[in-house]
Design a protein around this nucleic acid. Structure first.
Length: 573
DNA sequence: GCCGTTTTCGGCCCGACTGTTTTCAGTCG
């Protein structure tokens, strides 16, 4: 799919036009088109071939023409013209905190600054001094910003973000001034990656809280320190924004700061049609130039007066949830309590840190009814892959443990390698012994799209395969997802009764929520696993559940919400 | 550049903080 690359071009064009000083609404049109293409569930090339591009919201005649040109010829003349005027390297400069399009333009025109290196030289050489609107403090902030960029402030995965947020929440909760507290932003929406952490606090005494936040030992740099809003950078380079809200508008603020941005825009548009206005202080009726607050205390009240149901944070992406909620078509989403067991955890038999017995004990504490111990297969030597001989011993251990257990079943599983041709790493006789066979790719990521697709399709066709683990093999921050035809893989999964995994391990989070949303539309069924390598990892399942919810999954779309008997019946080939 | 139950023009979501000003522009979310 070329959706991402086209969306990226339009995002770039938006920013370049901003630097150029174009009409703000034209710029927004490019951003909006990029957003909608990125969120598109189907292949844009197919949409083009079926002449439906203009049906995508935010795509009119001009942008449609540009998309067609790009898909047909591999270049876009409007983009080429634009980067002649505004060097594409300026995009790096607006990424520097406290430098936006206006300053980028100023530095480019007055100092010929075209790259981060140029900017650094200009700052170090004192060249910024004397430019209009630039004084000591601004220069200092830009110097700091350059440092942050140099240290690579990337998006962190959901696991790291959750950890940092929990640390701050537990510290702040101790303050007597804090009446209520919640995370907001993409973290609350359960997004796979998070850029910064938003924390909202309900309190009538903001000053004390603000002073406390900026004085914490975790703070490396104070970006802002206001009366109700402060922003800090931790020593681990994580940006944490804390806002204090008056009790009467906590709900409205939570709604506002949870976003997403596009969801908020949609809410305001709905409000406008009803002569209302939404901001972080409440939902207001606007009449004869006067405003009357209709709701503000809780999110639910705000949704109520807008005529909407209580939309869960994970769904607030403006990909149709608002409209469908109006028609009562949104499914009842899966919840943590629906999970009855897991099919993909490791033990000391391969590269896990805990024994089968220890893993089982931890799983029972979570209220699970079963656990498949799916260790690596022979070929993956680096992770202690099991030989045929090892498997016999492991099976014996599981049988023995199962005899002792009441109301819990250990399943004999494997995470078996898919080789470069799509064959599985054990022969049929061995595969037939397992209760659960999960096939996975751990090597050969750089094959051609055709090879990768064929590999995954063949793995699905194997009559012993029950599920595909971490189907795109993404490693957040390190490895791109496999470049393959995901639609084909979904089709093979459906045709051969194979379940696709939502792997909850924080560096994987694979499938991601857009994959899930798309796969669901293709009729795929799922399994949510933690891929635990120790008892501490079992808790990661919560991230997989967030992704499932963001992909609109119900409990019946996920096989490990079934009892063990139902599960074994369902996966039987 | 997009869009339309005011449909081919005239709108297009809202506010806090900072640094520069002395009323506001730029940045950010």
């Amino acid at each position: 799919m070329r959706n991402q690359e086209i969306a990226d071009i339009f995002t770039k064009m938006g920013t370049l036009l901003e630097i150029k000083g174009e009409n703000i609404f034209k710029i927004k049109a490019y951003y909006k088109a990029a957003d909608n293409i990125r969120a598109l569930a189907e292949d844009i090339e197919q949409v083009k071939n079926e002449n439906r591009l203009s049906q995508i919201p935010g795509i009119g005649a001009a942008i449609e023409k540009k998309i067609i040109e790009w898909l047909d010829t591999g270049h876009m003349s409007a983009y080429q013209e634009l980067i002649k005027e505004v060097p594409v390297s300026l995009l790096k400069i607006v990424e520097v905190p406290s430098v936006g399009p206006k300053k980028a333009k100023l530095f480019f025109e007055k100092l010929h600054v075209k790259s981060l290196e140029d900017l650094k030289k200009a700052v170090d050489g004192g060249k910024l001094t004397g430019l209009e609107g630039i004084k000591e403090k601004t220069i200092e902030n830009i110097a700091k910003g350059l440092k942050v960029v140099a240290e690579g402030q990337e998006r962190m995965n959901l696991g790291i973000a959750t950890e940092v947020a929990e640390e701050f929440l537990s510290l702040l909760k101790k303050l007597p001034e804090v009446k209520d507290i919640s995370v907001a932003g993409s973290l609350r929406r359960g997004s796979e990656t998070v850029r910064d952490i938003d924390i909202l606090i309900e309190s009538a005494n903001p000053k004390k809280i603000m002073d406390y936040v900026v004085s914490l030992p975790q703070v490396q740099n104070i970006n802002a320190h206001g009366e109700t809003k402060s922003s800090i950078l931790t020593k681990d380079n994580v940006q944490v924004d804390v806002r204090v809200i008056e009790p009467k508008s906590f709900g409205a603020a939570l709604l506002y700061f949870t976003g997403s941005k596009n969801f908020n825009v949609k809410l305001r548009q709905i409000a406008m049609k009803k002569d209302m206005k939404v901001n972080e202080y409440g939902v207001f009726l606007v009449k004869d130039g006067k405003e009357k607050c209709l709701a503000s205390k809780t999110e639910r009240e705000c949704f109520d007066v807008l005529g909407l149901p209580n939309i869960p944070p994970e769904l607030r992406e403006d990909i149709g949830e608002v409209e469908l909620f109006g028609e009562k078509k949104i499914p009842k989403l899966i919840e943590a309590k629906d999970i009855k067991g897991e099919l993909h955890v490791h033990s000391t038999w391969s590269d896990g840190r805990n024994t089968i017995a220890e893993m089982v004990e931890a799983a029972m504490k979570l209220g699970y009814e079963y656990l498949a111990i799916s260790d690596h297969s022979e070929r993956l030597k680096i992770a202690g892959g099991l030989s045929a001989e090892d498997l016999k011993k492991k099976k014996k251990e599981i049988d023995m443990l199962n005899k002792k257990l009441k109301n819990f079943r250990i399943l004999f599983g494997t995470e078996v390698e898919i080789d470069s041709e799509g064959n599985l790493d054990y022969n049929d006789r061995i595969l037939s012994e397992f209760d659960v066979v999960i096939a996975a790719i751990h090597s050969g990521f750089e094959q051609s799209p055709e090879q990768l697709t064929r590999r995954l399709v063949r793995a699905c066709q194997n009559k012993y395969t029950h599920a595909i683990a971490h189907p795109t093999a993404i490693h957040i921050g390190k490895r791109q997802p496999l470049n393959m035809d995901f639609k084909e893989v979904c089709k093979a999964a459906v045709d051969h009764n194979v379940f696709l995994e939502i792997n909850s391990f924080p560096v994987r989070l694979d499938l991601n929520s857009s994959n899930v949303y798309f796969a669901r539309s293709q009729g795929v069924q799922f399994v949510i696993n933690s891929d635990s390598h120790s008892i501490d990892h079992l808790d990661y399942i919560k991230f997989g559940i967030s992704i499932a919810r963001r992909g609109w999954l119900r409990s019946e779309d996920v096989i490990n919400t079934l009892s063990v008997e139902q599960l074994l019946k369902k996966i039987k080939k």
